[in-house]
Structures are given as C-alpha cells and as structure tokens.
Write a protein that binds this DNA or RNA. Structure first.
Lengths: 105, 105
DNA sequence: TTGAGGCATCGGAACATTCCGATATAGCGA
DNA sequence: TCGCTATATCGGAATGTTCCGATGCCTCAA
C-alpha cells in the first residue's frame, strides 16, 4: 500500500468516475465492433477522436478532454498520425489494475 | 459488459475517487494496525465512526457521510451495536471487483 | 498558398462534490 | 429522568467537475 500506488489508483478511479469515460473504455476493447472503419487500422493504432465524439454524442472539445483524462490516468495511450490522434487501451496498465486494487485498496 | 455491472462499477469508482475514502478502505483492511481498541472486537464487527473520524482528521458529519457513500457503493457493511455503528469491509464484494473490471472495463 | 478537416486548449456557465457546523435521534449510565 | 456520547441528517459555502462554443495550431489536398 505504497503512497505512489495509492495515488495512481485514485487517479484511475477519478478518470473512471464518469459514465461516458467508462463507456469509452469499454468501446475501445473491441474497436471494430463499435466504430466505423477509418484511415488507419484501429486494432493497431486505436480510434480517432472524431469517432469517439460521434459515438458518445459529445462535443469535440469534450471528447478531446476526456481522452486526455484517461491518458493522464494511464488507461489509454495515443499515436498521432497525420491529422489524426488515435487512442487505444493501455492494456498492460489495465491488466495491472487488479493487482493495484489488491495492493492498495 | 451488462448495464447493471457498468453502473455498479461506476458507483464504486465514484466512491473511491476521493483520497480520504480510499485511505479509509485501506485502514479497514487491518483495523487493529490502524485503530485503537474499542468496546467491541473490530476484527469481527468493524470500526466505529468516531475512530475513523479521528484517524482521518475530518469532522463527525463528514465521516458519517463518507461511510454512507462507501456503503451505498457496496464496499463496506455496517452493524449497529448500542450507540456505535461499526463499519467493516464487504470482502466478498471487494474480491469480486477484479472480475467486475474485466467484465465491464 | 489557400482552404478544409481534425485536434487541443481556453474561458466560462451549470452542476456536483466536499466538508463543515448546527440540529435531531437514540443508547447508556448515574 | 437527565445528561453524555455516538451517530445521522440538514443546510450551505467553498471547491471541483462537466461540458460547451470559440479560437488557434497543424496536416493534407487542391
């Protein structure tokens, strides 16, 4: 129950304490089941902000902010390709969450 | 990724998205390491609100509210004995969290 | 070079959370 | 019964979150 772990877990909980952000994380698990095809392969690079915005029914600025929150919490990572920013799950970090829970909670 | 599970996970995240509440959950893991002896055995019934209040350095009303939030999220359960309300971890529910994560997140 | 599309950031209005003191209820002991 | 202690709940001020439109930057194609 180190202090750093506790802080990490807190940031994760804060990031997920919003219904839309929680939903987005679920959609990103199987991107091709939830989003339309795009310029680059979503299974590799992730999904662009515009698609997430449309799917979630939120404004462009809110979508961008939400993805930043999820990224700062370590739950997603991003790749910039041309004019698009693709977001995908940080699977290593997510896989480590149960351990973080049992260590800190 | 049922809707009910998603809602449960959201409530858990909201409950834990506060540094003091997160800390309290940790303290309740090994109560006798963090709280002074009390009228009833804390390993069985849990810890009374007053002790949590003092340990966390918050007001009585805030302590009571915080424990209600944790209880509504299913993270703790309570027993009333005489003039005390003892709170303890809902270990079954907590043990189910990793599964809830992998199912909903 | 210019215009259009995608994204990030800023500023702010609406809403929610935090956290307190005051007050109400109930158990306990004198 | 009366006062003391523990807890819950109420009302509200301060603070944080949510979410938007406006704006600016960057990339691509014409």
């Amino acid at each position: 129950m180190s202090n750093a772990e506790l802080h990490d877990l807190l940031e994760v909980c804060k990031a997920l304490a919003n219904p839309t952000r929680l939903q987005i994380m679920g959609w990103l698990r199987d991107p091709s089941d939830h989003f339309a095809p795009q310029a680059d392969p979503m299974e590799e690079v992730g999904v662009c902000v515009k698609q997430i915005q449309e799917k979630a029914g939120i404004s462009q600025s809110t979508a961008s902010q939400f993805m930043s929150v999820l990224q700062r919490a370590g739950l997603v990572e991003s790749t910039r390709i041309g004019q698009w920013t693709y977001y995908r799950r940080n699977q290593e970090r997510i896989a480590a969450l149960p351990g973080l829970l049992s260590a800190s909670l």
